[in-house]
């Protein structure tokens, strides 16, 4: 026993409880699901082969990827604009902006989804207002289509895009910009050739973070898509809770998981992951 404790740092003793809990109750069943994707209902690659054959499943995967890409583009571009304004604002103004951003971050996803339901419906506030001021004759269909899902998702994801961008922009040395201007570059040139490239790590982190979070997004697509826009997360839940096809659900989950891990790996090439999550770097 003594020989053992001499080699093992005592710090591990207090790491162990959480570590063991996560390994047994979280990692265990996830590995079990990966295993299921090859064994249920029968051993082999049947579930994966079906994905290639069945148009419906492939279409769902494609819809998900497409919506996630569009969501990511909008969230990152809009997030960039917010982060840029925040970094260049006065202190007081900046703290107001940060408050708004964090409050929106904290409002329950269910409250926000409910709000969109009230705003975007056929008789929702947006349509009623537009009709009242005579901009449109017919109500616009915002819900039960991809437009509604996109509005809800972009709205949810923007704060997630802003935070890594903010970290990255704050670490830029402003003197570099001044040097560029002094050397005769215009403001536009300085932005495109100096500022934007300097924020690449933040852009990569924001892009991948938003994309990863969008991939598994369940609540907003399920409500605002109203059954018309089926994304992978909702399809998985139907497979598990209604049709009880564990194999199909496990296969889709496995693909999603591999995608997420691959993106985390790419992200780790650009910046320390712990800084993305605001963790400790010592």
């Amino acid at each position: 026993m003594h020989a053992l404790t001499r080699h093992i740092h005592p710090g591990w003793l207090i790491i162990a409880p959480l570590f063991l809990l996560v390994v047994t109750l979280y990692l265990g069943p996830i590995l079990n699901i990966l295993w299921l994707s090859f064994t249920d209902p029968e051993p082999g690659l049947g579930n994966y082969a079906k994905l290639g054959q069945e148009g419906a499943q492939l279409r769902i995967v494609w819809t998900t990827v497409r919506i996630c890409i569009i969501t990511t583009i909008f969230s990152v571009v809009l997030g960039y604009s917010i982060a840029y304004a925040m970094v260049h604002a006065h202190r007081q103004q900046k703290s107001y902006m940060l408050t708004l951003l964090l409050v929106s971050f904290w409002i329950s996803i269910l409250v926000r989804t409910f709000a969109w339901l009230m705003l975007l419906g056929r008789k929702g506030l947006v349509n009623v207002t537009l009709e009242d001021i005579g901009l449109i004759a017919e109500p616009i269909t915002f819900m039960r289509n991809e437009l509604g899902v996109l509005i809800g998702m972009v709205h949810y994801m923007i704060p997630y895009a802003v935070l890594p961008l903010l970290v990255s922009m704050q670490s830029i040395d402003q003197r570099v910009m001044n040097a560029s201007r002094n050397l005769g570059a215009s403001g536009t040139q300085t932005f495109w050739r100096i500022y934007l490239p300097l924020t690449t790590p933040g852009l990569v982190a924001a892009t991948l973070l938003v994309f990863i979070l969008s991939l598994g997004f369940y609540v907003t697509p399920a409500v605002l898509g109203g059954g018309k826009v089926l994304m992978v997360a909702e399809y998985i839940s139907v497979q598990l809770l209604v049709t009880l096809k564990w194999g199909t659900a496990a296969m889709l989950a496995a693909i999603m998981l591999m995608g997420v891990l691959a993106m985390l790996w790419i992200m780790s090439r650009f910046m320390k992951l712990s800084t993305v999550f605001g963790g400790a770097t010592r």
């Binding site: 570590f19 979280y26 069943p29 598994g216 998981l257």
Partner: peptide
């Protein structure tokens, strides 16, 4: 490793807990 539950899509976590 311990940060994984935060980044793995919730639907997969839900599936894992449901399974176990």
């Amino acid at each position: 490793f311990l940060l994984l539950p935060l980044i793995i899509p919730q639907i997969i976590s839900a599936m894992a807990f449901y399974r176990l």
